[in-house]
Design a protein around this nucleic acid. Structure first.
Lengths: 228, 228
DNA sequence: TATATACGGAACTGACTAGTTTCGGATACT
DNA sequence: AGTATCCGAAACTAGTCAGTTCCGTATATA
């Protein structure tokens, strides 16, 4: 389960022991480390994390699921905390295409175009992971930063972009508080999954757009024309 | 810290062992159980829960903080899970006055009147507790129900009442989706605390009311007069 | 070929903790 | 008085898990 193709970009951490100023690792002799295992282990870590949460996750389970020895895991990450931070950071790459956003001409059209089964599923997965991390966020600022960058920010950023475009288009008022409005859907979707434990489906997202977001921006549910 | 005066209402659970159809406990002989310890222990459980989360919380810590022996705790609750469920359920009673809500004549006035330092602080505490519970909610439906009834519902309920009154008053449209709009502030406040880890202060709540909730209801930020 | 490292797997260590039991003393009924 | 239960405190039991070490084997350089 999960594709292997991901490359994790957040650094290998220290692999040797001696203090090396440059060239993180450099054993000239011996068998080379199989870096295809890295992403596989991280994928399994994400899966276990989503299923059991940070405290419930065990290195044994991750290693077993990746058909790896624990030594193979600890050779790459010096602790459970580092593995998790790297795994979470790695989710950032699963994101929707960087700037290949829809551009339908209306904000409503753009927001609706963002509702795709794949995006919903990926969002659900991220929320499962987030659920297992929340109690840790206050204990590990480093993890909190990783979770923010990989899970929280990407969503908000997309909304910010779409709404900024709508503003430049003249569709919404110049003095809209985009920063806040862009957080409505992430916030309400999180709340629905994490706390109400109900599914975030297409119908919910549409009612959110038409019942909350667009009205909050002063647009009717069926906006299409710029105001001026 | 924390007042002792609370009475927990959610039941004592089984205290004896033999199957008794009625009268849960009935030792005629011996020293009586000191029921003032119940609420004290529950208060300490809440405090530890807020600080460390469910997995980080230990019975030893709770007992030590309440200056009680572990046996005294286990005599009342047969497991950590039951203690936590009872402690969470107990938070319901800390609520804002049952139906003693503000009635200023406008929805904005009512919503602003709900912003009191005490209410903010209590909400923050509840969110800390919720943060420590989230990863457990999917594993224990009973805990999820308790958390919902004690932490989630009360807030939403107040908004629902205030908005229903505004509707009857003619201030907002008859076909408003109150069920969704009432969740905006709980959702965005939770998101802010749990995920963004920023404080929910007066300024945030006001910008939420004026920048999101009232506009979503078709009201200007300074509404005062009924529309029709 | 000799050496050094990687691999999966398994055994081991040390710390922690849920839950139980025991102890000396206090309190309440009979 | 006698007995049963409570109390706080501490010791004990049993299971779990992070992190380490060792094994036999595979693969790379020299």
């Amino acid at each position: 389960m999960g594709f292997i193709s991901l490359v994790h970009t957040t650094g290998q951490h220290r692999e040797g022991e001696a203090a090396m100023t440059l060239a993180d690792t450099a054993p000239k002799l011996g068998r080379k480390r199989d870096h295809t295992r890295d992403a596989e282990i991280l994928d399994c870590a994400i899966a276990v994390l989503a299923e059991t949460g940070y405290d419930g996750m065990t290195i044994d389970e991750v290693a077993a699921r990746a058909k790896a020895g624990k030594a193979t895991v600890y050779r790459r990450w010096s602790s459970k905390a580092e593995l998790v931070i790297d795994a979470v950071a790695c989710m950032k790459n699963r994101d929707l295409d960087p700037s290949q956003l829809p551009d339908t001409g209306t904000l409503r059209g753009d927001l609706l175009a963002m509702i795709k089964p794949m995006a919903i599923e990926e969002g659900e997965k991220k929320m499962q992971v987030m659920a297992g991390l929340i109690s840790m966020l206050s204990k590990s600022p480093e993890l909190a930063d990783a979770a923010n960058a990989a899970i929280v920010e990407p969503r908000a950023r997309i909304n910010r972009i779409l709404m900024t475009r709508a503003m430049e288009r003249g569709e919404i008022s110049r003095d809209t508080d985009i920063e806040t409005v862009a957080l409505i859907s992430p916030a309400m979707a999180s709340y629905r999954v994490l706390i109400l434990r109900k599914p975030v489906d297409r119908a919910f997202l549409i009612s959110l757009i038409d019942g909350v977001i667009l009205p909050a921006l002063g647009l009717p549910a069926r906006s299409s024309l710029p105001v001026r």
